[in-house]
């Protein structure tokens, strides 16, 4: 700060060239990010009635949201889901990345692609696929139930969320694995040589070289995963029409609820308020994770 104010030359140069470089990104950022958010904030202050049209209601939508049991039902569900699913998925991703990086597997390239492939399958397709596989009447589970004489139902109200967890984990483990794998590949080879000279075992290499190197990417993947799971929408939306009695309501996740409010209930203002509150909540959580992640990185 002080340096800038005392050096007029710097101050003069910065706006012209710097802003020019920033412009393409800046413009896009303003148009596709800032303006929509401001617009949402604006419409969240209005109520849209079928009879009577739009009226300004101030913060009523927010007040109402914080009293809405359906909102809490969905919000708590995704928080619990995130707390369970994200650690499992990231652990799997780390183990896979370590396995690929160990150079002890044959056909690692093939393996890498196969693990990554589910990420390329659209959520709609994968949900249909898993829906058929886990369905109890004719799917894989149906056959297993028949063979074993059990009555396990992956889409009962109590188990639907776990089934969605499986679908999401299947879809995103490969993506996270690639991030971890890239971090592992970036480790200078000298460290391994030094470790070999010191006579370190493979486990020691993993613990003292590889895992510490993953910390940065772990922060990134945790943030991405939290953002992703908080926005859960496709899977429950498709499953609700695919299987009956799955317990999926129109407010099953906050995003599904916002969608129902806006497009079935014509309550766009209320939906906007919900979306903004969820966005703020996600940002806070992601920020906490980031601060913690950075702190740990500096501690070591």
């Amino acid at each position: 700060m002080t340096l800038q104010t005392t050096s007029p030359l710097r101050r003069k140069r910065r706006p012209t060239t710097g802003l020019l470089f920033l412009a393409p990104f800046g413009l896009l950022f303003i148009f596709v990010f800032i303006i929509p958010i401001l617009y949402s904030a604006y419409i969240s202050l209005f109520q849209n009635k079928l009879i009577g049209g739009q009226s300004f209601v101030g913060l009523d939508n927010y007040v109402r949201l914080f009293k809405d049991p359906q909102f809490y039902d969905g919000a708590i569900r995704v928080v619990v889901f995130t707390a369970i699913q994200v650690p499992i998925m990231l652990l799997c991703a780390i183990l896979l990345a370590l396995a690929v990086d160990s150079l002890r597997l044959h056909g690692t390239r093939f393996f890498r692609i196969v693990v990554f492939l589910p990420y390329a399958v659209p959520a709609i397709v994968s949900t249909l696929m898993w829906g058929f596989m886990l369905g109890i009447r004719y799917g894989l589970i149906g056959n297993l139930n028949d063979a074993l004489g059990t009555r396990f139902d992956p889409f009962a109200p109590e188990t639907t969320m776990a089934s969605i967890g499986i679908m999401v984990t299947w879809g995103f483990t490969g993506y996270n694995m690639l991030i971890f794998y890239a971090a592992l590949r970036a480790i200078p080879r000298e460290l391994y040589e030094a470790a070999a000279i010191d006579g370190a075992t493979e486990m020691q290499v993993v613990r003292n070289i590889k895992l510490p190197a993953l910390r940065g990417s772990l922060t990134v993947t945790v943030i991405f995963s939290i953002i992703g799971t908080f926005q859960l929408f496709n899977e429950p939306n498709i499953l609700s029409s695919l299987v009956s009695n799955s317990g999926i309501t129109s407010y099953y996740t906050p995003n599904l609820y916002a969608y129902t409010l806006a497009f079935t209930g014509s309550q766009q203002g209320y939906a906007a308020a919900l979306a903004l509150v969820m966005a703020a909540f996600t940002i806070v959580i992601a920020y906490i994770v980031q601060i913690r992640g950075m702190k740990n990185a500096f501690d070591k």
Binding site: R137, Y138, S241, V243, S244, N245
Partner: peptide, 13 residues
């Protein structure tokens, strides 16, 4: 049968 929802694959079957 309350387990089968209309327009689903189960329904067709």
């Amino acid at each position: 049968n309350t387990k089968i929802t209309g327009w689903s694959d189960d329904w067709n079957r």
